[in-house]
């Protein structure tokens, strides 16, 4: 082997590069592109560097660095904020896969801090206590890409209009109950099928009804899919849940409490990764599910008071 010489390859975080060769950072293609590379994979919530290493070993495509998983946020109450900088740094140092972290809805300074830390993706998340009850972050202003939650097509397109490079269903985080994730994925996919059925002269009225940008509606009506990757999230607790979401059209899965609140985190993590890849092969899902201990204990979303629902946060 001969070593190839070259100027130092490691770049400085977020700096705008020299114009040579039309070099560009933080453009739409690289922001959306990282999400494209995560497709077919599982992004796991972790609260320690050790959990992050378990997730990486199990085959996670990325980890979400958190102080508390949603199930604990739900139980403990109080204001849920961006995780501590120390914890995020520890997790970033512990693994080689992308690291995401959550900022509160509308809290653009938390997002600025996460970008300054060199995080790979910011989740502007309803799981944290919103900082703004009217406005989301202007995500175009950032080099770091954002993922946002959505319950239906209109909400997904509003977030994309604000610059989100990836969306996910909200589901109902921390419940271990997939019912809301299913509802939201069906709403997004059904909304896309409906758009495809409309005439061109009906799209403006539909844009008004959805409260979503007209240009994005036209794009979706033409291509039949969102312009960004759409993962599922919020209540996925078993390999079968993960495969269900993929069969319903998810590009991949976020799993929060479902892994590290189960009795066998490494086993669940590996099995959910496998079920996300082989989502249409029930014999594989059966095989990887064998021998797993109990899944996390779930909550019945229908019996929960509306003010306890996280999915209603975001506008």
């Amino acid at each position: 082997m001969s070593e190839v010489s070259g100027p130092g390859a490691a770049g400085a975080n977020g700096t705008t590069a020299a114009p040579a060769g039309g070099e560009q950072r933080g453009g739409l293609r690289v922001k959306r592109g990282l999400a494209e590379m995560l497709k077919g994979g599982v992004i796991m919530d972790v609260v320690t560097a050790e959990q992050a290493r378990v997730a990486e070993e199990a085959g996670a495509v990325a980890v979400m660095a958190l102080e508390r998983v949603p199930a604990d946020i739900r139980r403990e109450g109080g204001v849920a904020r961006m995780s501590s900088v120390t914890l995020i740094k520890e997790i970033m140092a512990a693994v080689t896969i992308p690291v995401m972290a959550k900022a509160r809805i509308g809290h653009f300074v938390e997002a600025q801090v996460l970008q300054a830390l060199g995080i790979d993706y910011v989740d502007e998340s309803e799981v944290l206590t919103p900082a703004d009850e009217e406005h989301h972050i202007d995500k175009w202003a950032f080099t770091v890409p954002f993922v946002c939650g959505a319950r239906d097509l209109g909400e997904a397109l509003r977030r994309i209009g604000e610059g989100a490079a990836m969306v996910r269903t909200k589901g109902e985080a921390g419940t271990g109950n997939v019912v809301e994730a299913v509802r939201h994925m069906r709403a997004v996919q059904g909304g896309i099928r409906h758009l495809r059925s409309l005439r061109a002269d009906e799209l403006m009225a539909e844009a008004k009804r959805l409260g979503a940008p007209y240009e994005l509606l036209r794009e979706v009506a033409e291509t039949g899919r969102l312009p960004v990757v759409n993962f599922s999230a919020g209540g996925i607790a078993t390999p079968a849940d993960a495969a269900l979401m993929m069969q319903l059209g998810a590009d991949g899965n976020f799993v929060g409490s479902g892994i590290f609140k189960s009795e066998d985190p490494l086993g669940y993590a590996r099995a959910i990764v496998a079920a996300t890849t082989y989502y249409d092969k029930p014999e594989v899902i059966a095989e990887v599910s064998a021998g797993l201990g109990p899944a996390m204990r779930g909550l019945d979303v229908a019996s929960m008071p509306r003010e306890e629902l996280l999915a209603t946060r975001g506008w």
Partner: peptide
């Protein structure tokens, strides 16, 4: 011989006229 993430993290991702 290939170095993973050789340019850095996502913020160092880029496009280029090659």
């Amino acid at each position: 011989t290939t170095r993973r993430n050789g340019y850095g993290r996502q913020l160092d991702s880029f496009e280029f006229d090659l």
